[in-house]
């Protein structure tokens, strides 16, 4: 009974259309940073704590649930040691290239974002423990998720069963 239910879930996840997978990937990757941004915003406003809590849990839950779906969809296909056929290997390689492009873009944006105010505007950019903690936790959770998200992003819709 439980196995049949698990198979139904697997089948549902395996057949997710690409559009839905892309939405899940975006939600998963933005949920956690969104939670930190929301908390930082909340500190500057008079929004009651009763609203802060549910929104925070919703954003964390989005990353958590999205990650589980993405990992389940991709399984071991993002793993470099997995036994894949030529099409799957090629998709995985394209996903890795996409990850590299996304990470290098983020890194360049971060360097420019810190560099311009420091070098040209003479401002001092300070990173306190909260910001470093947020960056560290987001990187720890999201960087390992990136290959699965990239693969879910580029994998075409599965052919209909005939």
């Amino acid at each position: 009974m439980q196995q049949a239910q698990a198979r139904r879930w697997d089948s549902w996840i395996d057949r997710l259309p690409r559009r839905v997978r892309r939405v899940i990937a975006v939600i998963s990757l933005t949920g956690l940073p969104g939670m930190y941004a929301w908390s930082a915003f909340w500190l500057t406003t008079s929004v009651p704590k009763i609203i802060w809590g549910p929104v925070t849990f919703l954003l964390i839950g989005a990353t958590l649930a999205g990650s589980l779906i993405l990992y389940r969809f991709v399984r071991d296909r993002a793993d470099t040691r997995a036994n894949l056929d030529e099409r799957q290997r090629q998709l995985r390689d394209r996903a890795m290239v996409l990850c590299y492009q996304v990470l290098s873009t983020l890194l360049i944006l971060a360097v420019v974002g810190v560099g311009i105010p420091t070098l040209f505007l003479g401002r001092v950019v300070t990173l306190d423990a909260t910001v470093v903690g947020a960056i560290a936790l987001s990187a720890t959770v999201l960087i390992p998720l990136l290959p699965a998200a990239a693969l879910a992003w580029i994998e075409p819709d599965p052919p209909p069963e005939v």
Partner: peptide, 26 residues
């Protein structure tokens, strides 16, 4: 598709993509 995939040593979905012309084989 599964029979052909087993015979050719690929995933069954790869056969579907090949048949639909969405993947060019090596």
């Amino acid at each position: 598709r599964q029979d052909l995939a087993d015979a050719l040593g690929v995933n069954y979905q790869t056969i579907g993509y090949l048949e639909r012309g969405e993947y060019n084989p090596s």
